[in-house]
Design a protein around this nucleic acid. Structure first.
Length: 419
RNA sequence: GGGGGAGUGUCCCGAGCGGCAAAGGGGGCGGACUGUAAAUCCGCUGGCUAAGCCUUCGUAGGUUCGAGUCCUACCUCCCCCA
């Protein structure tokens, strides 16, 4: 889509070179504004989960690049719109969340952003408004008269988010149908309040973004712009940021740093270069050099990816500890200190801790039944020795430096520390 | 409002003459091979104090020695007519 366009602004150059750009309403026009400095742009985040996960990382990085290249990022919290629920890309309506949950989720999301953006009152400092501030006080009739008259139902029916639902005979409630109107109104409001000229988002947001630009035109704003990032999947088609174990949370309390590091370390060969560009800030020429690594050597590239991506979220020190823990675990077969850990008391150990229970406690097996099956399949290890007898127990003799290492398969390891 | 159809293992899709912990597939997990990759092959894929016991087929009742399967009511969804 970028074709032969050669942007002059640092912002668009970075986005295009690194693979962040999917669609843009007007590249040349946006380039001009970005070049003149002080571009204010926003991305909306719904407060549907207690934190953000790797699936939102592209969006977060968009805002980060904006700030790095002289713009002002606006991370809009959807405290209001989350009460409605975005139908885009979904077959069925999401359950409505209680207001307290939305508020709590918002706090969790704030903590994530604090790591990626510099907040404050300065020109280029990021801010984080909440659309609940203006949406919840809207008066229905006034809103319809002032804003609603500008929305064409004909056109809204043609939008993918709506059309797909209708075509598949899936219920679309009036509540959800209104989502895009509210999102469009957000854009207008942010333009008024902050001079925000650009809304960004994932490619599934294109329709909603264009609706906002359109509303702006009818309500007398300056020309607004929209830009979307590609919807990321791994090379084999899986959604970014989710695994069977759960989401790849950007919050240490929800996903240990070691496992975050492992997520990137275990990406597919074909994804390595692409991910380095999107999820690290290494200079492009350096990435180009790393990308050339092939076969077993590509593992070095993945380690760099893992450490850089982890450093971005959890800090460099934690990232290096994770890298070191992985090195000791996988390359030296040693018991690394910084693996995820659980604690048990000495008396519990004394009382006798069966292997089955131990693996369940460590979260490596969902039930003793599963632990039993894994033992039959040869998948469980205690201190790197395969467990063969499901009736065996963890003994004092297994404790090395105050801990035992439990492993499920080759990759998942948990330390049980005796306190 | 009238007529017809469907809801199955808490990841999904889906078979299921009254003996069913319930076929098959996808996904996932483990093993082998590798490079902590991909592809491929093999195994596993309700719970538990485990030769036994307990809980599962939209919900609640009923028939039966025995119900996912038959009957009744209810809920939800879809299709056709109005």
């Amino acid at each position: 889509m970028t074709g032969d366009f050669h942007p002059k602004s640092d912002f668009l150059s970075a986005l295009i070179e690194r693979g962040f750009l999917h669609q843009c309403s007007d590249l040349a026009g946006l380039d001009k504004i970005a070049r003149s400095g002080g571009l204010v742009a926003y991305i909306g985040f719904d407060c549907t989960a207690p934190s953000l996960h790797a699936g939102s990382l592209v969006q977060i990085m968009l805002l980060r690049w904006l700030q790095k290249t002289g713009g002002k990022p606006v991370a809009l919290m959807g405290g209001g719109t989350t009460r409605v629920g975005d139908p885009s890309g979904k077959d069925t309506a999401r359950q409505l969340l209680p207001l307290e949950t939305i508020a709590a989720n918002k706090e969790g999301i704030k903590r994530v952003f604090a790591k990626f953006l510099r907040f404050g009152d300065g020109m280029q400092d990021a801010i984080m408004p909440d659309n609940a501030d203006w949406l919840t006080s809207l008066n229905y009739i006034d809103f319809l008269r002032e804003t609603g008259r500008h929305f064409s139902v004909n056109r809204m029916l043609a939008m993918d988010s709506v059309k797909l639902r209708l075509e598949r005979d899936q219920e679309l409630s009036f509540l959800e149908f209104n989502y895009m109107c509210l999102q469009a109104y957000d854009f207008f409001e942010l333009y008024k309040r902050l001079g925000c000229m650009l809304q960004m988002g994932g490619s599934d947001q294109w329709g909603n973004i264009v609706t906002g630009i359109d509303l702006g035109r009818r309500m007398g704003t300056a020309q607004l712009y929209g830009l979307t990032s590609p919807l990321l999947t791994t090379a084999s088609g899986a959604k970014m940021g989710k695994t069977a174990q759960g989401a790849i949370w950007l919050d240490e309390a929800m996903l240990p740093v070691f496992e975050y590091w492992q997520y990137w370390r275990n990406c597919e060969d074909r994804d390595t270069g692409r991910f380095l560009k999107l999820f690290t800030e290494l200079p492009l020429d350096e990435i180009k050099r790393i990308e050339l690594l092939r076969d077993a050597e590509i593992n070095e590239a993945k380690k760099i990816l893992a450490t850089e991506a982890t450093a971005m979220v959890h800090g460099r020190e934690a990232a290096q500890q994770a890298a070191e823990a992985a090195r000791q675990t996988f390359e030296e077969d040693k018991m690394a200190e910084n693996l995820p850990a659980i604690e048990i008391s000495a008396s519990e150990l004394q009382a006798g801790l069966g292997v089955l229970t131990a693996f369940v406690k460590a979260g490596l097996a969902a039930s003793t039944g599963e632990a039993r099956r894994q033992i039959k399949g040869g998948g469980l290890k205690v201190n790197d020795r395969t467990v063969t007898d499901e009736r065996s127990a963890i003994r004092q003799a297994d404790i090395i430096n105050g801990a035992v290492k439990l492993s499920l398969g080759k990759k998942r390891h948990v330390l049980v520390k005796v306190t």
